[in-house]
């Protein structure tokens, strides 16, 4: 994700702190059942995403497309098949009631908020800094952290290999056929060589790391030193501020009914 966003203050927050705090927010979100509060929160999060992450407009739109798809699919499933007593519309197996519709909309906004919070984290966190911070602040074993970092570096190679295989298939006129058999042939034609090569490569890297006396225990020095500081405090205050704004705001601004969407 690096290189597509300008650096903002969110980039300076310690990745471990950011991860833990945002996970806390995520859990808290599960307890919001009020539609109006959810909508207001969503608007605030969208503003944070657009202006806080420093991401360019082109990429923001690109990321947003699958989010819209998820939003609508979440809304539709619950709206069409959910329980409810105040019937609005019925056609065959579809049965849209007031309750199910609002519950669906709530689910859509919740999914969108979940996704956007994740995206804010990813856009403002460099993977390398994340793993260095996990090792230093949360005492994550280096064996795992360095394996992650090495594996991330392998992904572009795997992507190139995928193209090579596809071109090789085209040149040789490989046609997997149709139906279940065709699917199976196609799957094994791509998955088996890609996975086999990845395993071989990972094995070679591990052997090389061990040959260089990589121990994978805690006592080691780090190239990047990360600490917890003022930006982390600011981030905590920022989250509390958002909570306050949404809390107070929901009393004054009512865009959608102030109702509990759960089954009563």
């Amino acid at each position: 994700m690096e290189g597509i966003a300008k650096e903002t203050w969110l980039h300076r927050v310690n990745p471990s702190v950011k991860l833990l705090l945002l996970l806390g927010v995520l859990i808290a979100l599960l307890f919001i059942h009020n539609l109006n509060v959810m909508l207001l929160l969503n608007i605030v999060i969208i503003i944070c995403f657009c202006f806080g992450t420093g991401i360019s407009r082109k990429y923001a739109l690109l990321f947003f497309l699958p989010f819209f798809l998820l939003f609508w699919s979440s809304v539709l499933t619950m709206a069409l098949y959910g329980k409810g007593s105040t019937l609005w519309w019925e056609w065959g197996i579809f049965r849209v009631s007031e309750e199910s519709f609002f519950r669906g909309v709530h689910l859509g906004f919740r999914a969108l908020t979940f996704g956007l919070i994740g995206l804010i984290f990813v856009c403002t966190t460099h993977p390398v800094r994340l793993f260095y911070s996990l090792m230093q602040q949360l005492h994550f074993p280096p064996k795992f952290a360095y394996s992650f970092m090495a594996s991330i570096r392998l992904l572009p190679i795997i992507w190139d290999e995928f193209h090579t295989i596809r071109m090789a298939h085209q040149v040789r006129g490989f046609s997997p056929g149709k139906g279940w058999k065709g699917f199976k042939r196609k799957l094994s034609a791509y998955a088996v060589p890609l996975l086999a090569q990845s395993i071989r490569r990972a094995y070679r890297i591990a052997v090389a790391m061990e040959a260089k006396r990589f121990k994978g225990n805690q006592k080691r020095t780090y190239y990047y030193q990360l600490s917890i500081g003022k930006w982390d405090l600011l981030f905590l205050l920022f989250l509390l501020g958002i909570t306050g704004v949404v809390w107070v705001g929901s009393e004054w601004i009512q865009l959608l009914p102030n109702q509990d969407v759960r089954l009563i």
Partner: peptide, 8 residues
């Protein structure tokens, strides 16, 4: 890390 729709 790929920017999942499901977030964290």
């Amino acid at each position: 890390l790929m920017g999942s729709e499901w977030g964290l």
